[in-house]
Computed example of a mutant assay.
Amino acid sequence: MTSPALSGWKQRHRSLYYAAAPAPDDPVIVPEATAFLVIDVQNTYVERPARSDVPAGEQAHYDAWTPFHDRMREVVIPNIADALAFFRGRGMECLHARIACATTNGRERSLSQKKPGFNNLLLPKDEHASQIVAAVAPQGDEIIVTKTTDSALTGTNLRLVLHNLGVRTVVCAGIFTDQCVASTVRSLADESFDVIVLEDCCAAASMALHDAELDILNMIYCNVMRLDEFKALAAPDKS
């Protein structure tokens, strides 16, 4: 039986490394030192043709991606929009990272984005495909960093920006859980930021990949929790 100390987010996503570890302390959310970072929720990842327009030989692959698209549409994008409203309403910083290259042929991209396959990303900065999805688009003077790397820290000045903003806790959301989100989380942890990942604001190509990566990240690089659990910590009910 799960003890009360290990209920909810304190129990989920425990790898073998932390199977017997004590319950983590609740993160202390200081609004002026906390930022929300949305990673790579871009048009290229959520737009696709109708199935009837896909060649017959490619439809099985198309179908394999349908759960991801369903999750993005029904869970991840609505939850990120909700989270953005929550952070904005409390005066907490919201930042956005996106993959985009400054050149039309992408010659300045990192090697990981030039190799053949899924990660071969050519997203010129002014094209529709590279833009952030409208439902979670930046507002006002929210900061956007543009990268040609997986980690939002490695390829940008984000570390300096966060430092200058006085941020110590970074709450992460976006895609893909096992790629750019994970790389960013590791970089943030290595730079001694406290990191929280909102599991229902992220997606990977499959739920198996999503859950496996959260198991790896949790407790060593970040705390993994749902949006409602984070809200309870950030704005506790004092009634």
Rank of each mutant, 00 (worst) to 15 (best):
T2I: 15
G8C: 07
K10R: 15
Q11Y: 11
Y17A: 15
A21K: 09
A23Q: 11
P24T: 14
D25I: 08
P27E: 00
A33G: 06
A35S: 07
V38I: 14
Q42D: 08
N43I: 07
T44C: 12
T44M: 09
V46I: 14
A56R: 15
F68M: 09
H69G: 06
V75N: 00
A81K: 04
F87L: 03
M92Q: 09
M92P: 02
C94M: 04
C101D: 14
G106H: 08
R107D: 15
S112N: 11
P116A: 13
L123C: 01
L123W: 01
K125W: 08
H128W: 11
A129L: 07
A135L: 14
A135Y: 10
I144G: 01
K147L: 09
T154Q: 08
V161S: 03
V167M: 10
T169S: 03
A173M: 05
T177M: 14
S183M: 02
T184M: 07
F193D: 02
D194M: 08
D194V: 06
D194G: 10
D194H: 09
V197R: 02
C201S: 13
A203N: 08
N223W: 01
L227K: 08
E229V: 04
F230C: 02
K231W: 05
D237M: 15
K238N: 10
S239Q: 14
